[in-house]
Amino acid sequence: MAEEFLVVKDLHKSFNEFKAVNGVSFSIEKGEIFGLLGPNGAGKTTTIRMLSTVLGADSGDATIGGHSIRRDAEAVRRIIGVCPQDLALYEDLSALDNMVFFGRMAGLNGDEARAQAMTNLELMGLEDRARGKVAKFSGGMKRRINLAIALMGNPQLLFLDEPTVGIDPQSRNHIYENILGLQKKGMTILYTTHYMEEADRLCQRVAIMDGGQIITLDTPYKLKSQIGSPEQVTMEDVFLKLTGRSLRD
């Protein structure tokens, strides 16, 4: 049996009366790409914010690499990388400055941070734009920098919150390849997306959330099998069947 790297147990979080996350439990194996899907407001981002220790949980707990997010948040932060849904960059600085800064924040020394920044920029195909001001980058380039920063400090678990939103197919494909490359190196990835084909292509297992709860969790193949022939049914069909067709905010 594979080692469970992330274990989430009955996690709850409310904002006033609104229950954003309501008893979420799942686990992710080491080296797995795990998809967390759901319509807007399902609780995906809140779950990721709690797991990345930015937001405190009301109750429940999770362990990452054996460290509790509630009792040992600092140890958790040392082994995770976060690529937030929104671009989290200093636009007035260069790509290299951004990466070196976050590398230093992740505990690297100056030389390590610069070396790793160049490696990651190369990985993202941006090595020739290292000294370019981020503000002048295209949307796709910014997304790639956003992901590259999350890799600074060699995290063991990567949270990718909709990393491909709003970019062209070329940049998206480049990011897919990078994610698969990271998995081959043994990195564990928790991935959220609204693009169902992404989840189908990248994730070994997928959990679909709605109303703050996980309503189903399985491999894409098995999820598709639940409603028809896996060759003919898409993940979008599964998603819409489970979460309904009504509009969400």
């Binding site: 914010r49 990345s52 220790t53 930015v54 600092e74 932060r77 040392r78 995770i80 976060v82 937030p84 929104d86 671009l87 989290a88 960059l89 200093y90 636009e91 976050f102 924040m105 992740a106 505990g107 920063i149 400090g153």
Partner: peptide
């Protein structure tokens, strides 16, 4: 607002 604070909070700072 630029979400860099959230990114910083997720590091060991």
């Amino acid at each position: 607002q630029n979400h860099t604070l959230e990114r910083l909070l997720a590091t060991s700072v």
